[in-house]
Simulated assay, not measured.
Amino acid sequence: MKILLIGEYSRLHNSLKEGLVELNHEVLLIGDRDGFKNYDVDITIGSKIFNNSFWHPITKLILRITSINLIAFENAFRFYKILHRLKGYDVVQLINEGVLKTYPKFEIFLIKKLIQYNKSVFLLSCGIDYVSVKYAFDKNYRYSILTPLQEDEKHRPYYKHILNKLKSSHKKLHQYLYENVNGVISSDIDYHLPHIGVDAYRGMIPNPINTHKIDFKTLSISDKIIIFHGINTSGYIKKGNVFFDKALEIIKKKYTNKVDIIRTENIPYKEYIKLYDTCHIFLDQVYAYDQGYNALEAMSKGKVVFTGAEQQWLDYYNIKENTIAINALPNVIELVDKLSWLIEHPKSIIEIGNNARNFIEKEHDYIKITQKYVETWSQNIS
Rank of each mutant, 00 (worst) to 15 (best):
F73G: 00
I30Y: 02
H170Q: 02
F77K: 07
R11K: 14
Q150W: 01
F359Q: 06
I189L: 06
S300P: 09
F54T: 15
N354Q: 14
L124Y: 09
C126N: 15
N257M: 04
V374M: 05
Y287F: 15
Q285M: 09
I115F: 14
T211Q: 04
G127V: 05
P57E: 11
V332R: 01
N331L: 06
L339E: 04
G46H: 01
E74Q: 06
L114F: 03
K119F: 01
N380M: 06
F306G: 13
I71G: 05
A309C: 12
L166G: 03
G35R: 03
S125R: 10
I262K: 09
I71D: 04
Q175D: 15
M299K: 08
Q371A: 09
N207V: 08
K160P: 00
H280D: 14
I71T: 07
Y373D: 13
S382K: 13
E334P: 00
L335S: 08
E361Y: 05
T102H: 01
I3Y: 11
K239E: 06
D365R: 03
G7F: 03
L342W: 13
K165M: 12
I273A: 05
S382T: 11
L114V: 05
V133S: 05
A76C: 01
N266T: 02
C279R: 07
I251A: 01
H56M: 12
L61R: 08
K254Y: 00
I349A: 04
K134F: 10
G7N: 05
K338L: 06
F122A: 11
D90W: 09
H195E: 14
I221C: 05
D138V: 00
E297C: 08
E18C: 07
D40A: 11
Y255V: 05
Y158R: 03
S47N: 07
I65Q: 12
Q175W: 00
E8T: 01
I350H: 14
I128C: 11
L275R: 15
K274H: 04
F54N: 04
